[in-house]
Simulated scan of single mutants.
Amino acid sequence: LGSALPRPRGPHWMTYFEVADVDAATRLVTGLGGEVLRPPGPGAAGREATVADPEGAVFTVVTTGGTG
Rank of each mutant, 00 (worst) to 15 (best):
L1M: 12
L1R: 08
L1C: 05
G2W: 00
A4E: 11
G10Y: 02
P11T: 11
H12E: 11
W13D: 13
W13V: 11
M14S: 08
M14Y: 02
Y16W: 13
F17N: 00
F17R: 03
E18G: 10
A20I: 00
A20S: 14
A20P: 06
V22I: 10
V22T: 15
D23C: 04
T26V: 14
V29K: 00
V29P: 06
V29E: 07
T30A: 06
G31K: 02
L32I: 05
L32Q: 06
L32P: 04
G34L: 10
E35P: 03
V36A: 04
V36R: 05
P39E: 14
P39K: 02
P39C: 06
P40D: 09
G43F: 01
G43Y: 01
A45E: 09
G46S: 05
R47H: 08
R47I: 06
R47F: 13
E48L: 09
T50E: 11
T50G: 02
A52F: 01
D53A: 05
D53R: 15
P54A: 01
P54Y: 08
A57I: 05
V58W: 03
F59A: 15
F59I: 14
T60V: 14
V61T: 14
V62N: 01
T63R: 14
T63C: 15
T63H: 15
T64F: 13
G65L: 12
G65P: 12
T67K: 15
T67F: 07
G68S: 14
G68M: 12
